[in-house]
């Protein structure tokens, strides 16, 4: 489903890694590992099409993501470090906007249910600035419940600032997504309770 060949990443004037190949099939989960600064976030951004690689190509379902941008981005859900939350809007409004801006229909009932499921049922109508750090991150994760139809999920440190119960729930959700035929790529420093260990790509091996 997702293939990358000969990827090289330049940051500033330094080459972070080169000659990186990866293949990820439907139902696969990939964990990108490595020490801080090795280029995990940069790799994820290249795989999403947010950054241009110095060399190499990323292909989704056989097509170069730069050529088939629309199809690729309809299939992609990316959650980066920043929770993409606007302080003046409520979590519900933020979630609705995220869905609509991504070209999906925003069914209110499902949004409320998703927010309830991640534990923000009581805060739905409060402006996001009153939420704690952990609560803010969880609003972004609510999208995972509503956008399940998108096959490729790319998550950068999704478990940060979550308590144990939330971590378990999220791990279960990711695995369910893979079982349903979706693909997950994530980076994490924590040991998440996955039933089956994900494929691991250690960037330290291809680092320059």
């Amino acid at each position: 489903m997702l293939e990358a060949t000969e990827l090289a990443c330049l940051k500033g004037d330094r080459l972070l890694f080169r000659g990186l190949d990866l293949v990820l099939d439907a139902g696969g989960m990939l964990r990108v590992a490595g020490p801080n600064g090795v280029g995990k976030t940069s790799l994820l951004r290249i795989l999403c099409g947010l950054a241009l690689p110095e060399h190499g190509q990323v292909r989704w379902r056989g097509a170069d993501i730069r050529r088939e941008r629309e199809a690729f981005h309809s299939a992609l859900l990316y959650l980066g470090h920043a929770p993409a939350l606007n302080d003046l809007l409520t979590p519900l409004e933020n979630l609705r906007f995220a869905l609509r801006a991504g070209g999906e229909a925003a069914d209110d009932a499902r949004c409320v249910e998703a927010l309830g499921r991640i534990g923000l049922g009581a805060q739905i109508d409060l402006p996001a600035r009153v939420l704690s750090q952990g609560q803010r991150r969880r609003v972004g994760l609510a999208r995972l419940f509503v956008s399940a139809a998108r096959p490729l999920w790319v998550l950068d440190e999704p478990f940060t600032a979550l308590d144990t119960a939330a971590v378990a729930d999220l791990a279960a959700t990711l695995e369910a997504h893979c079982e349903a035929g979706g693909t997950v790529i994530l980076t994490t420093h924590q040991d998440a309770p996955f039933r089956r260990a994900p494929q691991v790509l250690d960037l330290a091996e291809v680092a320059c």
Partner: peptide, 22 residues
Amino acid sequence: AQDHADGTLEQLLLTPEPAALW
């Protein structure tokens, strides 16, 4: 500025719709 700071800009750049529109 605000959208850049809170990460919304990235999400907007990932929308399948043509960027020129939004």
